[in-house]
Each structure stands twice: as C-alpha cells, then as structure tokens.
C-alpha cells in the first residue's frame, strides 16, 4: 500500500477503533445487547404482548432496538471523540493532513463496522424473538421480515454516523450522549405520544418504520429510512464543516 492511499487510511482508522476499548466495546455491544435484551424480554412477555395485538407484530420483535441503538450511538460518539481527547487529532492530522480523506475514511470505517454488526444484530433479534413467540412467530419468508433484518442494520449504521457527525461538531462524546440518549429514550417517546405527525420525521422514529410490517403514518418503510439518512447526512456535513475549518 502506498502512502496516504485511501486503503492505507482506512486500515489506520480500523486500527484506531480496534485499539480503544470503549469504541470497540460499544461496537460489540450492538450484537450483545440485541441478544441479551431479546433473551430478557421475549421468554417472559413475548407472547402476552403479541396477544394484545396493539403493536405491529414485526416491530414488537425489534423491541431491543430501543437499547441497541444506544450502543450504536455510543460507538459513533466514542469513535469520533477519541480524536478530541488530549488533542489526539493533532497526531491524526500529522499522519493524514488531508482532512477530507481523514474524515471520509473514518466515516466509511465506522459506518461499515456499524452496518455489519447492525445486520448481525437484526438477524439475532429476529430469530431470538421468534424462538419464544410460539404461534405469533413470524417466518423469515413472511412479508417485511427480510427487509426488517437488513433494515435494522441500515438503521443502526445511520444512527451511528448521525452520532459521529454530531460528535465531530461538538467535539465531545459526553455532550452528544447526553443529548441523544435522553432524546431517544424520552423526548422522542413523549412527542410520539402527543403528536404522531411531527414525530414521524424525527431521526429515530422515521428510520424505525423499516422495522414495521405495516409502517405507520405517512412515511413508508424505505422513505422513513431515507428521512433518517437525511438527518445523518446533515450531521456528517456539519461535522465535516467543523473539522475542515477549525484549528486542531
């Protein structure tokens, strides 16, 4: 590999993620949480909840996403914030002074890693939940099933990059986590309850339409994911703009 080739910089970014426990741990936590939450929830209340029929049967299977996405957010945030601890970005920029290349390579590595782990988590959630759902189980060939497994991966990758972009903008994982986690756990939930209209367009709500058998509201499964992709693109652009302009 020649110096500063995209392949070399991608390799370097992967070493950065692997070598920091908080980043790599959060990445692994995406799958671990998917399995753990599914095992904690479905044997106990999987069937009773499905029986009520209040919830979309496919979306119920992805209940663990509520927690898995927190792992994804913290992966995106720590992968970015490791560059701001003690001015570590200076080391990175000395090695790779082309800021667009550095930022782009990080986004590609973080996004790809999250996508792979996200898809694995999608299938893990699907099959784990179904193992305990008895007559309410959904087959992988049923409408929307396969779409939702891959969709879960795409959604988690987008949320990860959303978090990474915001962290580059704010230069602090703590700031981003203390905005996004309460937002996703509380605000989105509350607004969702009050007004279904506006909440549909929130980054988490919109993208999660991909996990429904029959998506709610005006957005379809893929358009919903597209809306999340736009949020992510905006966050990544903001992070890129900040990285390009600022003194390191």
């Amino acid at each position: 590999m020649s110096a500063l080739s995209p392949a070399a910089v991608l390799h370097s970014e992967w070493i950065k993620i692997r070598s920091i426990r908080s980043s790599f741990g959060s990445l692994l936590a995406v799958v671990v949480a998917a399995l753990g939450i599914a095992l904690a929830v479905f044997p106990a209340i999987g069937q009773p909840e499905a029986e009520t029929g209040e919830m979309d049967p496919l979306f119920w299977i992805y209940y663990p996403v509520n927690f898995v996405q927190i792992a994804a957010i913290s992966f995106g945030a720590t992968a970015a914030s490791s560059e701001f601890l003690n001015g570590a970005l200076r080391n990175s920029l000395m090695a790779v002074p082309r800021r667009n290349l550095l930022y782009g390579a990080k986004a590609v590595v973080v996004g790809s890693a999250a996508l792979v782990m996200g898809v694995v988590a999608g299938f893990v959630m699907f099959f784990t939940a179904n193992a305990f759902l008895g007559k309410y189980a959904i087959g992988i060939g049923d409408p929307g099933a396969l779409r939702s497994c891959f969709g879960a991966g795409l959604y988690l990758a987008l949320i990860t990059l959303f978090s990474m972009g915001l962290t580059f903008l704010l230069r602090s994982a703590v700031a981003v986590l203390s905005i996004l986690v309460p937002f996703i756990l509380i605000v989105s939930f509350v607004i969702g309850g009050v007004s279904e209209g506006a909440a549909t367009w929130l980054p988490d709500r919109a993208g999660q339409q991909i996990l429904f058998q029959e998506p709610l509201g005006t957005l379809g499964a893929w358009t919903g994911l597209g809306v999340t992709a736009l949020w992510t693109a905006a966050a990544l652009l903001a992070g890129w703009w900040a990285t390009r302009r600022r003194d390191a």
Partner: peptide, 29 residues
C-alpha cells in the same frame, strides 16, 4: 517530516504499540 508537538496528545487508552501502528498504517509504512 517527523514531529513531536505534545507528548500528552496520545490517546491514553491505547497501547504505545497501537498508537504507532495506526500512524504507520496511514502512511503505508
């Protein structure tokens, strides 16, 4: 160019070797 600006700028959670590994990899060393 080899530069040392601030010895404190390395990420504390990495090992010394990993710190050098990612730098070397980026430049194809």
């Amino acid at each position: 160019v080899g530069a040392l600006l601030d010895a404190q700028a390395a990420h504390p959670a990495r090992t010394g070797r990993d710190h050098l590994r990612f730098l070397a990899a980026s430049n194809g060393l």
